[in-house]
Design a protein around this nucleic acid. Sequence first.
DNA 1: AACATACATTATAATAATTCTAAACTATTG
DNA 2: CAATAGTTTAGAATTATTATAATGTATGTT
Lengths: 142, 142
Amino acid sequence: MTKNCNFIEKLREVGLRPTKQRVKMCEVLFNREKTFHFTINDLVKMISEKMSEKISLATVYNTVHAFEKKGYLKEISIDSHKSYFDTNISAHHHFFDEDTHELIDCDESDIDPVNIKKNITGKKIKSVEILIKVASDNQTQK
Amino acid sequence: MTKNCNFIEKLREVGLRPTKQRVKMCEVLFNREKTFHFTINDLVKMISEKMSEKISLATVYNTVHAFEKKGYLKEISIDSHKSYFDTNISAHHHFFDEDTHELIDCDESDIDPVNIKKNITGKKIKSVEILIKVASDNQTQK
DNA sequence: AACATACATTATAATAATTCTAAACTATTG
DNA sequence: CAATAGTTTAGAATTATTATAATGTATGTT
């Protein structure tokens, strides 16, 4: 697998040693065409399925957060009960399907740029995020 | 206090019995000019200060969620660690000050309406929320 | 290749936020 | 004012996350 070399490089860039747990994590996270949204729990399950050995929760938390800090993952907050992470780190917005609890990326072309006319004195805008909650018609709003 | 009568009515509308704990909660929540943002913890503290008797955490959680369900409060998700609630239940957006952890309402006039060109088949848009994170210039992005 | 060392992993304990439970209490209705 | 249906409460249970400390491992040096 030439892919693994990329992952090892990536880990090095981030300042993490390429251990087998971390390389496996990278495979799950970054070895895909499409953007990938997940919770820590999802991730632990997926890694466990892909690996004969066990991976500890703590390792997953630590490594995910290390990636987040360095900008390889983005956290998306939908409600107070769930942290979603996103492998698409460009500035973009989301749909959240309340029926399936699925997160869907918006393309840049899906939403016109937001025009903010107010600013807080002495403060800089760090990010602008739009979350569009959707549900099937018969569903009541949360 | 004529105000308390309103709160008793309000509680009745929501289908809750107007007990003294709940009336006190209403005073803290709704007896103000300006929008009010709070976490459950903030709220418990504020109520305790206003009341000689203790109020239990469980009661605050239950009542806040009852109000939320009925649309008298709105939950705002900033990060996975904190639930903020908002007494301003109209559709509106927020600034979040990463330095002070303060939530600030946007007026309707502060942000142009969002134009969404994509839609998810079979799904209806339930809400559109913009969160603008700000911090002082020397602060690094979270 | 073996070593030393710094960094990782792990299971488990600790913490924090929230929800559940069951017993005691209270507003409401008749 | 008594019966009852709904409330409050303290504390236990649960869940997500973080910290800890002992053990294990990747890495650069030799």
